[in-house]
Structure formats: structure tokens, C-alpha cells
Nucleic acid binder design. Structure first.
Length: 316
DNA sequence: CCGTAGTTTCCTGATT
DNA sequence: TAATCAGGAAACTACG
């Protein structure tokens, strides 16, 4: 029911949606009118959008490609055009009138058939998004600098470099859980000749290559806590034993290692004094905003509310 | 400089 | 008794 629920406080993608549509027109895609007619349900409810910065954050680069809507697929395509300064007709949007799930199931061959030479770029970028970044996660493949840090919980080996960090699951695999904005920029730098340095507030002040066509979101500290939690849940193989789903379809989950999660969150925020006590206070603030719902009587158990996005299995 | 969002920190008291 | 939950209050910080 709320796959494209427009009631959440900030479907602030309106400007972007307009941009995409304009872009489609400019690109003289022969089926642009088709695109317009097939605008998915995101065209509904605009007028009711309460443009709050609270949810500026939930856009294509903040959720796993698997969960993208058709619109988010187009956003991604548009983004690639913009960031690679590609000619608009390089990517036939009409060939990508599909949701993220479908997109993720496409082979390289299918991408090439759909988008010609650009297909390879799309494919490799998507593979990267699928396996290395996602949701609030992102990475710098060229910056996998592992800096060992002490962890109270011995099962938790976390390494950091700037905004990103690597989480060693303790099972021999080192994976990334990074900031989404960083990931976005990493993707850009990855596919453009001029390499951009990792995300940092310092860098942000000096860099001016970020495409302006993508509206700046009010997400001052990178991934929000609830997104961070969601991403851990969406990566059970990467973050084993930290948080688990109690009821996947209902969005109910439970902290298994509350302090370990708090440490991980603290690491992300560069705050070594983070505790579950403090993290849980922030979680409780989400009740009022309906990002979380109360689960009475169960310790360490939370439930995603109607304003939490991107956690459902088939959210499109 | 100001206001706001999203925490962070601290605290008191209740519950498990 | 320790851990967790519930919220109030104030502080903090990036951002517009």
C-alpha cells in the first residue's frame, strides 16, 4: 500500500522529477510521451507532498538498486548522463521503463542490447552499486585503506578512512558500509576522468564539480541513524549478528548486539563515546516522526514506521 | 547571524 | 542489580 506512499513527509523529488521529464523531452527520445504517460505513481500525490527536508535523503542513491522504483531507475540514468557528460541520446530511457528489481536481473548483454555502448557503463556502474554500495552504503574502491581500531566488542572489527569505513565481519570478509553522498560522489569520480577526493567537509568546500542538477539534500551528517540501521538489516551477510529481522514483512527488527551497533554508529559519526543508551534515545525520537513504531514489552525490538523507506523487500 | 533538523548528552524514574 | 525503556531538557552542529 505504501510502496510509493506519498504521505511521507518529504517526497522532495519533485524538482528532480521535473528535471527528468524535461531531460527526456530534450533528448528527443521517440517515446518520451510514452514515458510521460507511463509515469509511475510518483506523479500522484505531488500536490500533497509536504516538502520537508526530513526525507530529502531517500533517493536512488540511498537505497539498494534492487528496491528502486521506475523513477529511481531513471534518476540513476539521468545521473550517469550528467556526471559523465554523455550525450542525452546515449541512453534510451524507454528501454529502462523498469523497476530496480528488473534492472538488477539484467545481464551485461541485455544492457548492451538496450543501451548500446553505454550499456557496459550502466552495467558496471550498477554492479558496483549492487555489491559495493547501496542505500546509505557507499564506498571508495580506491580507498580501501584499513585502519585498525580498537573495539570493545571483539567481534566487531571496524576500519575507517574519512567518511567511509570497512566492517570486518569477523568471518574473513571485509565489506563497506558508507555514507550515501560519499558513494554518489565515488560513483561519479569512478566514471569520470577527473578523480575526486573522498568526501569530507573540507573537500566539500573546495570542490565544485558536483553536478548542480542534483538538488542538495538536507542531510547534514550523512546517513541518518534509521538509514544506518536499515542498511545493516539489508546486509545480514555483511553485518552478521548485529541486528536481525523479527518480522521482515512488518518491519520488526531486534538488536542482538546493541553496544556493538552503537559503536559502529559512533564510528560513523566519529564519536567514540556513543552508547546504546544514547543511540536508543535517538531511536525513540523516531516514534514521533513515525519513522519507527513502538513495540511494547519487547526489549531491543523496534519496528519501521510508515515514514521509513527502503526496507521493504519489494518496495516499488 | 538565525532557524531548523537531527541528533547527542544527561537525567530522572519506571520496567524487565 | 543491571540493562533497557521513556521522555524532558538543553546542547551541539551542519546546512539553508
Amino acid at each position: 500500500m505504501d510502496g510509493v506512499e506519498a504521505t511521507w513527509t518529504g517526497v522532495c523529488c519533485l524538482p528532480k522529477q521535473i528535471m527528468i521529464l524535461e531531460g527526456a523531452g530534450r533528448m528527443s527520445i521517440n517515446s518520451s510521451s510514452n514515458l510521460l504517460h507511463q509515469q509511475p505513481s510518483w506523479t500522484d500525490g505531488y500536490s500533497t507532498c509536504n516538502v520537508s527536508s526530513s526525507f530529502y535523503g531517500t533517493q536512488w542513491h540511498e537505497i539498494h538498486p534492487q528496491y528502486w522504483t521506475k523513477f529511481q531507475v531513471w534518476e540513476w540514468l539521468q545521473h550517469l548522463l550528467d556526471t559523465n557528460q554523455l550525450d542525452a541520446n546515449c541512453i534510451p530511457f524507454q528501454e529502462f521503463d523498469i523497476n530496480g528489481e528488473h534492472l538488477c536481473s539484467m545481464s551485461l548483454q541485455e544492457f548492451t542490447q538496450a543501451a548500446g555502448t553505454a550499456g557496459q557503463l550502466l552495467y558496471s556502474n550498477l554492479q558496483h552499486l549492487k555489491w559495493n554500495g547501496q542505500c546509505g552504503s557507499d564506498m571508495y574502491q580506491s580507498h580501501n585503506v584499513i585502519v585498525k581500531t580498537e573495539q570493545t566488542d571483539p567481534s566487531l572489527m571496524v576500519s575507517w578512512k574519512d567518511d567511509n569505513y570497512l566492517y570486518d565481519s569477523g568471518y574473513g570478509s571485509t565489506v563497506e558500509l558508507l555514507d550515501s553522498k560519499t558513494f554518489c560522489r565515488a560513483q561519479i569520480s569512478m566514471t569520470t576522468p577527473s578523480h575526486q577526493p573522498p568526501d569530507s567537509s573540507d573537500v566539500k568546500k573546495t570542490q565544485d564539480h558536483t553536478p548542480k542538477s542534483h538538488t542538495k539534500k538536507h542531510n547534514p551528517r550523512g546517513t541518518h541513524l534509521w538509514e544506518f540501521i536499515r542498511d545493516i538489516l539489508l546486509n545480514p551477510e555483511k553485518y552478521p549478528g548485529l541486528i536481525k529481522w523479527e518480522d521482515r514483512s512488518e518491519g520488526v527488527f531486534r538488536f542482538l548486539k546493541s553496544e556493538a551497533v552503537a559503536q559502529l554508529w559512533g564510528k560513523k559519526k566519529n564519536n567514540s563515546s556513543m552508547t546504546y543508551e544514547k543511540l536508543s534515545r535517538a531511536m525513540r525520537y523516531y516514534y514521533k516522526r513515525e519513522i519507527l513504531e513502538r513495540v511494547d514489552g519487547r526489549r531491543l525490538v523496534y519496528k519501521f514506521g510508515k515514514n521509513a523507506r527502503g526496507w521493504r523487500e519489494n518496495e516499488n
